[in-house]
Design a protein around this nucleic acid. Sequence first.
DNA 1: GCGTGATGTTGAA
DNA 2: TCAACCTCACGCC
Length: 268
Amino acid sequence: MPEGHTIHRLAQDHTARFAGRPVRVSSPQGRFAESAALLDGRTLESAEAHGKHLFLELGDAWIHIHLGLFGKLGFGPAPAPPATDTVRLRLANGDHWADLRGPTACALLGEGEKKAIHERLGPDPLRPDDDPDRAWKRISRSRTSVAALLMDQKVIAGVGNVYRAEVLFRHGIDPYRLGKDLTRAQWDAIWADLVGLMREGVRNNRIDTVRDEHLPEAMGRPPRVDDHGGEVYVYRRANMPCHVCGGEIRTAGLAARNLFWCPHCQIR
DNA sequence: GCGTGATGTTGAA
DNA sequence: TCAACCTCACGCC
C-alpha cells in the first residue's frame, strides 16, 4: 500500500535493521535467486528512496525495489519463520529479517542503471534537495489536468492516489483544472503542503490529512475506521458527506484510477 | 470456494 | 484506452 512516504519509511527501516552489517540474501520464491546468491553475505551499505522506488546498496550493486500496487515488505525479529512460496526476497541478519512479496520490480542494478531511474523521476517532496521548480516548469505549460499531473512520476515523484486527492482538497483546487491554469502561488502551496504531509506520513507510517479543526473529535463524529488507517477528507469517501461543507463527495475515473473530490469545496 | 478491488507501472493497440 | 503483472483481504455464497 505504497505511496512515497511508505518507501522512505522502508528505507529508514532497512537502514536501522541492516545497514553496516553483512546480510543473508535469499529468494525463497526463486525469481530473484541468481542475484540473491551473488549478493548473499555482502554488507548492506545504505538504503535510499526516490519517489516510490527503493534502493539497497550492497557493495558495488543496488537492489532496486518497486512495490507497485500489491507489493509488501514485512519485518520481524530473528529467527525468521519458514519462508512461504511468495517471498521474492528475504534479507536476514542475527537480529532481523525482511520479506518482500508481490513487487512490480526487484532487480539488481549497477550505478548507471540506478542513475537512469533517478533521471526519469521528477522532484520528490521527501528529498530535501529536490527542487519544486522542475515540476512547475512542466505543470505551468501543460494542458493536462492537475489531478493527472500529480500522479505523473516524471513530474513529481512519490505522490499517489491518496495524496493527490487530499492535497487538492486541502487547497480547494478543482482536480480538472489544467496545469497551465494553476498559479505559481497555488503550486508553491501544494508543494510545501506535500512536504509537510509526507514527512508526517513517514513518521507515522500512514496518511493523515485532516486539519485539527476538522478531526472527528472536533466535529463530534466517530473516528474513521478504514483499512488504510488515516484520517482523510475525500479519499474513498464517495457519496459520503464532506467533512467541511457537508456536501456529497464525488468520484470519477481518471487515467484508470479513482479520483475523489468535493465539487463544492474544490472550485479554484 | 469464488469474485472483487487496492495507496502502481508498463507496454501494446 | 486497455490488458498484463504481482498478492492478499474481504464479502458473499
